[in-house]
């Protein structure tokens, strides 16, 4: 049935898009304002000076460096663990497989605050001092799920007899993985890895619970917002974060679009 009120529908669609994206535009706008204490509209004047101030602030560079390091290591761990878990669940038959499959996905369904508290108390009980590595561990819990979901979907689509064919033709386990399995799941790994990186890069809640004195970029931004002066600095950094996370999410979207939809991409 064709819609009888296409005009109203168009208004609704435009309204939704505006609701979602106007706040983002405001971030761009106020990165250039000359007024630093409050966000008055329209901005009294425009300037590029905040970009140069950000460029000279060592604490921002430290936060960016830490975020990239954490996201990089967490993604790497997630790729290895997620692939192993997906291989086990899709290939092997063992008791309680479906329940274990649910347990793998749970960290992304659980509120971050629960994951955070659980990890914090676990680290406390085990006397592990808070450091970059505790943040990495925290991020790996949910990054792994994204990789797991992507790789599992790919494994389900590829024929199991291909692995048998490879063994049959004389390839041992390692050769089969390198020449047959890895090429099959490469784009799923790339998509899962990019999403994992983006998730880790802007994570706040789990990080708050598992970080010691270090501040990742999102934590730095939170603390900066509380300060009354130089507010446009956070907007400049926010633009940087949008750029860094938007590219991999877009790439992952196009990489997986040709295949089936993979769940677990949002947190």
């Amino acid at each position: 049935m064709r819609s009888e009120s296409p005009f109203l529908l168009k208004i609704a669609a435009i309204g939704c898009v505006a609701f979602l994206h106007v706040p983002l535009l405001l971030i761009f706008l106020y990165a250039f304002t000359t007024e630093e204490k409050s966000f008055q509209f329209p901005p009294p004047g425009y300037t590029m000076k905040w970009f140069s101030i950000v460029w000279d602030r060592q604490d921002i560079w430290d936060a960016i460096g830490l975020s990239v390091k954490v996201a990089g290591i967490a993604t790497l761990l997630a790729l290895i663990l997620g692939t192993c878990a997906a291989a086990a669940v899709s290939r092997a038959r063992f008791f309680g497989r479906d329940h274990i499959s649910l347990l793998f996905i749970l960290p992304i369904a659980l509120p971050g605050i629960v994951t955070g508290i659980a990890l914090r108390s676990a680290f406390g009980i085990m006397d592990i001092p808070f450091s970059t590595w505790t943040i990495v561990l925290g991020h790996t819990t949910f990054c792994m799920v994204v990789v797991y979901n992507n790789v599992l979907a790919r494994f389900r689509r590829t024929s199991g007899s291909m692995i048998e064919a490879s063994m049959d033709l004389g390839a041992d386990g390692f050769q089969t993985f390198r020449h047959v399995v890895l090429p099959q799941i490469a784009s799923a790994l790339l998509a899962g890895g990019m999403l994992a990186f983006a998730l880790s890069f802007d994570e706040v809640i789990v990080t708050t619970f598992t970080a010691g004195q270090q501040a990742t970029l999102p934590i730095w931004m939170l603390s900066e917002l509380i300060r009354p002066r130089q507010r446009p600095i956070t907007n400049v950094v926010a633009i940087f974060v949008i750029a860094v996370t938007f590219v991999p999410i877009l790439a992952a979207y196009y990489l997986t679009r040709e295949g089936e939809h993979t769940g677990g991409t949002g947190k």
């Binding site: 007899s161 490879s166 049959d168």
Partner: peptide, 27 residues
């Protein structure tokens, strides 16, 4: 011993020639 599979199980990411040469390559 080699097998011809019911669903053929060809490697989709390789050319036909590479598929046929696979057994020799891994050896």
């Amino acid at each position: 011993v080699n097998t011809v599979f019911q669903d053929y199980a060809l490697f989709p990411h390789m050319t036909v020639l590479d598929n046929v040469a696979y057994g020799l390559m891994v050896k």
